[in-house]
Simulated assay, not measured.
Amino acid sequence: MKKQRIIGMFDSGVGGLTVMKEILERLFDVRIVYFGDTARVPYGNRSREELIRFGEEIVTFLIGQGAEVIVVACNTSSATALPVLRDRFDVPMIGMVEPGARLSVEKTIAGRIGLIATETTVRSKAYSSAVSRALAKGCLPEDSALREAWQHGEQPITLIKAQGCPLFVPLIEAGLANSAEARGIARTYLNPLRAAGVDTLILGCTHYPFLEPVLREILGEDVLIVDPALAVVKELEGLLKHLDEWERSGLIGSPSSALTKKPWRARYYVSGDPELFKQVGNTLLQEPIGHVEQIILGE
């Protein structure tokens, strides 16, 4: 019987559950240890130094829980701290930015990509750079007309507008994703993107899929919404296959069985209020969140 890999995953709060949901629905031979840093949410106004320190504390904890792969299910951390974390830890890591950028390039039909994200992610220009890298590495649109026009230099493909949305995460963490307040704020944030004529919109924060019904209501059917979580699952699947191959060849050891004695698919840890995390998280996941344990880091 194939051993189940243990995936460590973290976000500033409940947002990473949108990624976790996609992974659990598509990959049946993994288990997830999830950490929501709810005592320090939001991350969008944090400094790079803080985000690196938070990431180091959380990754250390997740590895201690048996994690063999880390999914940084936070765009802000992916855009700022991930390169440092990869250098400091000997464990494979997947972020949100590169997979999301590739998916937006593949799905755009007019080459006019937009982004909504935290202010830190927007300032980092990580997504704009990642879109350029994706194209340079040979990633092309699925739309044949745009692909041919780009290859002949007739049509640019670029991230034309990035919009910071600082109020979204606090709203979602408070359980107000479907409120009138959320709709009003979303209209304000989306107006510049609509004016810029984007045809594809990247959800540059893992909290934002909670808002997808509201965003679709405002944007209409002409704008494609891209959730990077779908591309992360694909990348994770490929990485897990490589781990299996490396293990069979003896390049790495077998996964620890310390946490696989009892059947479970997900374990939840937070730095803040476990009950609030459960309350908001249960609005997304089809299976109710069970026990959530509070872990205080950085003391």
Rank of each mutant, 00 (worst) to 15 (best):
V72A: 06
D87I: 06
G66H: 11
E56D: 14
L82K: 01
S78T: 09
L51A: 04
E68P: 15
E56I: 10
T80D: 02
V69A: 04
F89D: 04
E49V: 10
R88A: 05
A67N: 09
F61Q: 12
G64K: 15
I63F: 11
R53E: 15
R88Q: 08
L62V: 12
R48A: 13
F61I: 13
R53C: 12
V71F: 03
E57Y: 06
L85G: 04
G55V: 05
N75Q: 05
L62E: 04
V84M: 07
L85Q: 03
F61C: 11
S77P: 07
V71H: 01
L85S: 03
C74F: 02
D87K: 12
E68R: 11
E68H: 13
L85Y: 01
E49H: 09
V69C: 07
A79L: 06
Q65H: 15
I58T: 10
E57C: 14
V71Y: 00
F54K: 03
L62S: 08
G64N: 13
T60H: 15
G55P: 04
V59I: 15
V84C: 05
L62D: 04
V69N: 02
R86Q: 13
L85A: 06
G64L: 12
S78K: 02
L85E: 02
T60R: 15
E57N: 14
T80M: 07
L82G: 02
G55H: 01
S78I: 07
F54Y: 08
S78E: 05
V71K: 01
E49Q: 12
A79V: 05
L62H: 08
G66L: 14
E56N: 14
A81V: 07
R48F: 04
T80L: 10
R86G: 09
I70T: 05
V72I: 11
I52D: 02
E57V: 12
D87T: 09
E50D: 12
F61M: 11
E49S: 12
R86W: 04
S78Q: 05
I63C: 15
C74K: 01
T80E: 02
A81T: 07
A73R: 02
C74Y: 00
L51E: 00
T76R: 01
G64Q: 14
F61S: 13
G64H: 13
E49A: 12
V69P: 02
A73K: 02
V71Q: 01
T60N: 15
G66A: 14
F61V: 11
L82A: 07
L62Y: 05
R88V: 04
L82T: 02
G55M: 05
V69K: 00
F61T: 12
S78P: 09
L85W: 01
